[in-house]
Simulated assay, not measured.
Amino acid sequence: MANVTIRNLDDGLKKRLRIRAAEHGRSMEDEARDILRAALSTTENRPANLATVIRIRMAPLAGVMLDLPQREPIRYAPDFSE
């Protein structure tokens, strides 16, 4: 088993950890170990790229229908030869 030392821990954070450990009936070390285990045991499936993130975010909106203007015939290039 490896050992980890956490330096410069905020006093308020340490106090909250101590209270949480007491509520669960265990030591601060065991509580910190449980918090780390829970936080790191979840596997997040992150989208591969920005387009996927946008598609997922916009999916509930079911897309947007736009009124497209009628197409006009192709214009001929001006003749500057004169």
Rank of each mutant, 00 (worst) to 15 (best):
R20M: 09
A59P: 04
H24L: 14
P60D: 05
T43C: 00
E82W: 03
P69A: 08
E31W: 07
L61H: 01
R57I: 13
H24R: 15
R16N: 04
L68K: 14
R57M: 15
T5C: 13
T5R: 15
M58H: 03
A32W: 06
A32H: 07
Q70G: 02
Y76R: 15
N8V: 14
S81N: 11
G12Q: 14
T43V: 05
G25Y: 03
R55I: 00
L68S: 10
E23L: 11
S27C: 07
D10R: 04
E31N: 04
P73W: 07
P60K: 15
V4N: 12
R33D: 01
D34A: 04
D30G: 08
M65N: 11
G63F: 00
D79W: 04
M65K: 13
L36Y: 04
D11N: 01
V53W: 06
R71S: 13
P47G: 06
A59F: 08
R20L: 00
L36E: 05
T42F: 00
D67F: 02
R75Q: 03
V4F: 09
A51E: 04
Y76T: 12
R75T: 11
N8P: 02
T52V: 07
R71L: 15
R20E: 02
M28P: 05
R37F: 01
D67P: 00
R57S: 10
T52Y: 02
D10Q: 06
A2V: 13
L13W: 03
P47W: 01
R20C: 02
A77S: 06
